[in-house]
Design a binder for these strands. Structure first.
Lengths: 214, 214
DNA sequence: CTATGTGAACAGCTTCACAGCG
DNA sequence: CGCTGTGAAGCTGTTCACATAG
């Protein structure tokens, strides 16, 4: 068996896609699926699906396929999303507010339980949207993180503040950062960082549509 | 020489990072840099920097390095961002509004020149923020795209509408889509798609912080 | 001596293809 | 048969190491 090895990051990202698709199948009332079905719905080869799942165990039955409900639970357990996960947000600018209002997180079991900023003008303001959140000073971060045992934080501050704030988050106990600041975060390699850099995406597209990337 | 080959997508994304760092160097008054400098600032090896640039030509001088100003212009020309680029936004929900307000795009030469939605309640409303944009019905997309010769569009609609709207965008003449909808877009392979899937990022972090990815 | 540009070696992810179970 | 699970092969991107230019 192969699940002793370390799963590659791309496989983990796809696991997340598989889970979402499995939930679609479940809502549609399907009880069984196959690596081909799943892959076809997501633009992935059937072999890839099997290989990815194979990193974590054996979940299917030859000749039959996978039980949708069962696989959903297994994948959730692998990802650690079988129970709701609380996260914090640091940086309540335009993007931060959009993240608070974004319903997609809650659908997948993530809840922003607190928001922080350094700007005195923002502190205390109720952010709009469902379950208004009071914006707290960043000095309160550590206390909130340890009280709620929070491991993941969203970082939505300007590039100039990114590194400093990331260090504060790590010091407060955060172990994974979803980084929206266009800057390299230098943190210990026991801290997971996943970055979303919108300008990089746009410039990649600019390159591709200009035919140079034909 | 090697620049006849097809540059890998990861190399193009890094090109975008190099450009940003070069601009930082320029503001700091540096006239010269090296692959080591550049890489160190971005967490990339010096060999990687040279290889990436090597896909597009020879820009440095052995023993000396790269001229900051010159390299900036070369990289901009490669990416196609040496002149401002107009883009459109489709989907004016929370995320769409945040994208309109996001200043990072303008800094890098991208401007959202029009916003579209299908919801009659949103159409016509001035969006808040600098240079208020009137939200137009999606039926106007084709006309705007062809009049401004727009090639790139931001797609920020719910997953359920993603595929349909993407097809409308392609039909209107869009050649590159920055997709925020958590759904696979099936478009011709002459259309570039770059997707940002926030839930996938978060679930990846959830996995990593739970020690399973240790 | 410094730093680029690049073929060659390497690593890691994906695809193939098939043995084996149902 | 159909479909999984998985070694083996293949491919793509990264790192190495060095010839070469300044």
């Amino acid at each position: 068996m192969a699940q002793g090895e370390q799963a590659p990051i791309p496989a983990i990202r796809r696991l997340s896609l598989y889970l979402r698709q499995l939930e679609v199948f479940e809502v549609a009332g399907r009880q069984t699926t196959s690596s081909r079905d799943l892959g076809q719905a997501l633009g992935v080869s059937d072999a890839q699906v099997r290989k990815d799942l194979g990193h974590f165990g054996q979940f299917g039955r030859p000749g039959v396929g996978y039980q949708v409900l069962d696989l959903i639970q297994q994948v959730r357990a692998i990802l650690g999303t079988d129970k709701p996960t609380d996260v914090v947000l640091v940086g309540v600018g335009n993007l931060g507010r959009a993240l608070i209002a974004y319903r997609g997180f809650a659908k997948r079991g993530f809840g922003i339980v607190a928001a922080f900023d350094t700007d005195p003008d923002k502190i205390g303001c109720d952010t709009p949207s469902p379950d208004p959140l009071v914006v707290r000073p960043i000095e309160d971060l550590q206390e909130v993180v340890s009280r709620h045992d929070i491991r993941v934080g969203l970082l939505a501050v300007p590039a100039s503040a990114g590194q400093t704030v990331a260090q504060l988050m790590v010091a407060a106990g955060i172990r994974g950062i979803l980084n929206f600041a266009p800057v390299l975060l230098r943190v210990g390699d026991d801290i997971a960082v996943s970055s979303v850099d919108l300008s990089v995406h746009l410039e990649q597209l600019a390159f591709q549509v200009n035919g140079l990337g034909s």
